[in-house]
Design a protein around this nucleic acid. Structure first.
Lengths: 160, 160
DNA sequence: ACGAAGTTTCAGTTAGAACTGAAATGTGAC
DNA sequence: GTCACATTTCAGTTCTAACTGAAACTTCGT
């Protein structure tokens, strides 16, 4: 591999990091959180310290600490300490996407609560405004376990 | 029904409107958009003019106009003009939730684009950072049509 | 136990999105 | 065609949440 190739792929990875960052920012995460996730998708090595992240992404130590804390809390980042290293290193968990999907039942539960509250305050006209929500939630309460099972099967077949 | 009952249920509906508003704000919509959606869930009549919404929700005409425009664009609000009425009226579509679910394939397509871009910039270490995304997207590309079909069946059985 | 390195916390600042209000534009009734 | 009503647009303002920087705190190696 030539130096040129190396430079080109580094560029490509930086561009991809920006794209991933953009994706998550659109999805409601902060700029800092998006940048961290984008960087962690392609950086070498895959696990980075807070100091490395801060300097690579031009973020303050405070921002990095805060964002890593929340990203770790929701399972999108994993904190590890390599043997003999002083500082914690942060990386994307191997099963990030499975974890994210695993919280789907909590989102369904949130909608269930909303539907139940609505059924207790049904308007006289167009009650379907509420009942259609209830209906949709009932569908996913029944369907999600099935989807989760199929995902397990899919991952097993893929050998993950 | 007594006056007391009427007052109580009006309170209940107002409380529910706030809860729905809260839900959508948490989900990333603006306060104004959330308020409108909450109000439209329980208001009488179910279809409201911009002027009514503005005064009921203490929002400026500009905010109401802007938010209704974007909510209409994404299919969460429907604009109708009752015969003989001057102003447009805005209401929740009967099939709001089906519409929202109907855009799921666009979200999957967005993730597909992200996965493809990533596969073109694979990092040397932990390539699973990218491939696991690709895998997850492949699962849903295969699964979503099946889920949509089951939703159709579910709605048919419910008589909707 | 001490010192150095790493992390967290938080008061203050900044950046940017949401909202307002009023002017401009559009629309329907007569 | 005109007028009144309705809606949109947008420059200016307000408000909120993100971010910074530095001090406080924690942790680990010696």
């Amino acid at each position: 591999m030539t130096d040129d190739d190396t430079a080109r792929s580094a560029d490509a990875r930086a561009g991809y990091a920006a794209q991933v960052s953009q994706y998550w920012e659109t999805g409601g995460l902060t700029r800092a959180a998006g940048s961290i996730l984008g960087h962690l998708m392609v950086c070498e090595p895959a696990a980075q310290t807070q100091a490395t992240l801060a300097s690579a992404l031009h973020l303050s130590a405070g921002s990095v600490s805060t964002q890593l804390r929340t990203l770790t809390a929701v399972g999108m980042v994993e904190r590890v300490r390599p043997p003999g290293e002083r500082a914690y290193h942060y990386q994307l968990p191997q099963d990030m996407w499975v974890r994210i999907l695993g919280t789907e039942d909590q989102r369904i539960a949130g909608l269930r609560a909303l539907a139940d509250a609505g059924m207790a305050a049904l308007p006289a006209t167009r009650p379907d405004r509420i009942t259609s929500l209830d209906q949709m939630v009932r569908f996913f309460e029944g369907e999600w376990p099935r989807i989760a099972a199929r995902l397990d099967e899919f991952l097993r077949k893929e050998g993950t």
